[in-house]
Write a protein that binds this DNA or RNA. Sequence first.
DNA 1: ATATATAAGATAGATAAAGTCCGATATAGA
DNA 2: TCTATATCGGACTTTATCTATCTTATATAT
Lengths: 163, 163
Amino acid sequence: MRLTRAAEYAIRCMVYLAKRGKGLLTSRQEIAQRAEIPGHFLAKIAQDLARAGLIEIRQGAKGGFVLLKEPAAISLLEVVEIMIGEIYLNDCIARPSTCRVSYSCAVHQVWMKARDQLRTTLSEVSLEQLVREESCIAPSRGPCPGLEGTDGDPENIPEANSV
Amino acid sequence: MRLTRAAEYAIRCMVYLAKRGKGLLTSRQEIAQRAEIPGHFLAKIAQDLARAGLIEIRQGAKGGFVLLKEPAAISLLEVVEIMIGEIYLNDCIARPSTCRVSYSCAVHQVWMKARDQLRTTLSEVSLEQLVREESCIAPSRGPCPGLEGTDGDPENIPEANSV
DNA sequence: ATATATAAGATAGATAAAGTCCGATATAGA
DNA sequence: TCTATATCGGACTTTATCTATCTTATATAT
Ligand code: SF4
Ligand code: SF4
């Protein structure tokens, strides 16, 4: 009953892109470093986000990702469900036929309510809101400067300790 | 992001025991059959429920499980969290130290809210309420009579030996 | 052309869930 | 007391999923 790592990374990636703004190209490396996402893993996650139409992926030298929609038009729920599929909480919500009492089960009703609440809460938050507040990304300078300087090292970032 | 099978079974077991009433002994076989839970798996689940103090397990011939608390005093949340641990939805909620921005992350706040809502919703439902409505267990007679007749069949269908 | 950077799928390792098995233990009843 | 019955309780197996990496192919800037 918890979010997958991939979904958490996807959120960070989208928040970072939203912070940069719609239409702006950002390299995968930059996102991976600043949002602390394993580089190759981010590539894979981006494929899902691209298939869903949230971003465009530019190949080749100076490639990277581009946000295709307005941050205000993308909800947290959308990003999460792209990565982990529609939220159900319990199997019988996704497929009532798997439990023959589902049509008359009070517990079933509770899960329905809980699931609707959860999805509503997540859908009410847009990337634009999240960017307006501080989210996911450690500031370039400030409490955690270690990251700014680290330049080379494309895939694995050097762990940014040392502060 | 979904309930485990073990937790779903635990709920069914507790609902069945609640339906029978506090203090009444019910055999594991009966519960397993009526609530459609794999027998041995139920034994394992019952251990967790017993450790948590919800039920007592009686060994020996004519053994079984006994509900120790009033159905009204047991919430759905309680049963669920006995089986899957405290609900937190995202790792950073359980251990904020795993993400260094958690103290100033708007997404983190959203997960907090979502988690609190979910836990509240589940905590507001008691076994007593669930029993009052129909829950989890197919009625002995009615839409699904098939179950009533199947009698023998303790663990695995006797099949070979039969003696 | 060449160097750079991502695509896309295959694959492996780690972790967790789901279910099974078996020796040990406890009780009822002969 | 002895035996048959039924669960205990943990070890074990299987299966599925998550997480991450690797490899070959492809696209682009210069
Ligand atoms: S018993 Fe109720 S809650 Fe459980 S799987 Fe069936 S319908 Fe869902
Ligand atoms: S970025 Fe925010 S939501 Fe994601 S793990 Fe860190 S604190 Fe939690």
